Computed example of a mutant assay.
Amino acid sequence: MKFIKGVAVNQPVFAVLDNRGLLHVSGEQAHSFLQNLVTCDVDQVAATGAGFGALLTPQGKIQFDFLVVKTAEGYLLDTPAPLVADLKKRLTFYKLRAKVALDDVTGSTQVVAVWRGKADGADGVHVIEDPRFEALGQRLYGPAETIEALLAQGGAKDAGIEGYERHRIGYGVPQSVADFGMGEIFPHDADMDDLNGVSFTKGCYVGQEVVSRVHHRGTARKRFVSVTSKTPLPDPGTAIETGGKAIGALGSSTRTGDGFKGLALLRLDKAGAALEKGASITCGQESVAIELPGWARFGWPAQETAAD
């Protein structure tokens, strides 16, 4: 490991994500069961070890989102901890006579994020690269004692959940519960298409027709983008405005360096028009700047397409 003025370069940083829960889907039909329900291609998850996906409402809105992790017996669904029981209940509704077992393993399996470096594997620990965006780092799943020893051996530094939130928000990656409620928005709104969370080739799943129509017609009107400010950003849900009219709302935010950064779900046409005109954009009483995340494949629509 190299050091510059006492600071380790590429020293792994980690956070125990006790705000995440885990549902294990196992059984001889676990693969086909999930493949027919979720937005991501479970064939690809089986091949690569991990994926990002969601279970949608029939109307195409995000009901639950999760990382999907391949295990020897099936798949782990890594989702916000408060939603595990509801996710299990919803999947049980779809289960019918399928040979599938659904087990909440939150208490026995720890979830840890590692970034700025790599963690090695160990017996009983699943190590994956975050399938949404490479710079987010790794996720580790396993017994707390084993992971603790593994990270200590690698010299990793504990940044806590707040450190992980700075990391996530800094890269402009939205997260359910923190940035949006369940059943409120579509996958394109949450940038899931650009974060490897939606397959447009695997075939049918719940809500697939709506998602496919939005994608092929290019009709996604709202997206999460990054918001920066020199002053602290207000509470989530605060309107983002230009010309006295709301164009969206703020999600989560954090301090980054000498400023503050957050995420906001905005009308792209209205936000793009404001940028074209050089108009002031505010959140609460403060001026803010907006920008697309570096990984985004979508862009600002032309000014003339903005609706009143």
Results as ranks from 00 to 15, higher is better:
R132K: 11
P187Y: 03
A152K: 13
A47K: 08
N10Y: 10
G278H: 05
T39G: 11
F186P: 08
I240D: 00
T231D: 00
G262M: 02
L34M: 08
T228A: 08
V100N: 07
H188A: 13
K95R: 13
Q175R: 08
R132F: 06
R213C: 04
L22W: 05
K89L: 03
H215I: 14
E276S: 14
G137L: 03
Q303H: 10
Q11L: 11
F64V: 12
S212A: 15
V173L: 04
S199F: 01
S252L: 06
A98Q: 12
R255S: 15
A122M: 02
D194V: 14
K89Q: 10
T109Y: 00
L91W: 03
L67E: 03
S26V: 00
D189V: 08
G51V: 04
F14V: 04
D78Q: 02
G243R: 10
K222S: 10
D269P: 11
A264V: 01
P236H: 04
T282M: 02
K89A: 10
K70C: 02
W295K: 05
V100E: 08
S280F: 05
G107E: 15
G259Y: 02
K270M: 15
I62S: 08
T106R: 01
G60E: 03
E162Y: 12
D308T: 15
R213Q: 10
G142D: 07
A159G: 14
G183H: 11
V114I: 07
K157I: 10
I290R: 00
S280D: 13
G74R: 00
K2D: 14
T92Q: 13
K70Y: 05
L265V: 06
M192A: 05
R166C: 15
L23Q: 10
V84S: 01
H126I: 05
P131M: 07
G154T: 13
P174T: 02
G27C: 05
P143F: 06
L250V: 05
S26R: 06
E162Q: 14
G248M: 09
V38H: 05
G284N: 01
W300K: 04
R116Q: 15
D179M: 04
Q285F: 06
